[in-house]
Design a protein around this nucleic acid. Sequence first.
DNA 1: GCAAAGTGCTTGCGTTCGGAAATATATCGG
DNA 2: CCGATATATTTCCGAACGCAAGCACTTTGC
Lengths: 148, 148
Amino acid sequence: MTQTSFLAVIRLLSAQALLEQKFSQELGSVHGLSLNDSLLMMHLEQAPLLRLSRVDLAKRLCVSPSTVTRMTLPLEKLGMLGREADARDARLAYVTLTDTGRKVIGAARQTLERKSKEVFKDRWGAEEIENLADLLGRLTASQPNDLV
Amino acid sequence: MTQTSFLAVIRLLSAQALLEQKFSQELGSVHGLSLNDSLLMMHLEQAPLLRLSRVDLAKRLCVSPSTVTRMTLPLEKLGMLGREADARDARLAYVTLTDTGRKVIGAARQTLERKSKEVFKDRWGAEEIENLADLLGRLTASQPNDLV
DNA sequence: GCAAAGTGCTTGCGTTCGGAAATATATCGG
DNA sequence: CCGATATATTTCCGAACGCAAGCACTTTGC
């Protein structure tokens, strides 16, 4: 007898692999962003001052701080992200979302929204999608600020 | 107004990153397997003859064929996987699950089941977990054979 | 104040992955 | 039967990641 929780976890992992495969290509070729790049910028988008520290971003994305450093470098050179120091703590190097970055992530979000709709196009009712979103939200509720 | 389908997708991606972070470490240190290694072996486990072709595995795992080649190489050297040719089609090189592999993935599965239970330990009812598993199952239903 | 511990960030190294190209075999159309 | 196309697998190359180490700065305990 297989446990339901195990079944849910396995299916979640499989579903993610499927979604990443479906989204990754167009997101990269059209907007020049990876899926993680987009999530990073979306976190910045909803931050109070359009900025977050690198460790904060690392926790939200569930990646290592070094990954954030390496992710932000090219986006900074492209003018989508900026760097801002903290007046009180000289260790902090905030990642900021520039105007260019806001436009790019806005366009990328539209692509993501369109492809998200495609995922549930067949055999899905509105209340079922909402149900799924709610349940997944409870999984990520333990994490720092929820997205969207 | 944010679309519900978009919300569900974003939360699924975030949840996966969280789960991978929680599972990956112990799975690697205790059983010497990555999460993808485990999924690969679990697919073999439920295959009719304990074997699958590499392209079949690639489709099920949503990874490239080259990744399957690279993943199976070390597991084969450790004696968990084997290689078997097809009598009719000389191109095929089936990946087989050895007795050693069956024992290892069996132990790894127990770890995964235990940690899966931990994920839903608080604030989750049995019917909610089942509901989540069902909904996620519909997402992966379009894929080749479902796991578990 | 000051040494010690803690935190934020970056770099070097090894590992893992996808895409393109190469090889081998199979299937199809004539 | 034979050339053209399709499929299965592997290898090469570049990109992305985690971990450990290191540096800069801050906080804590005395």
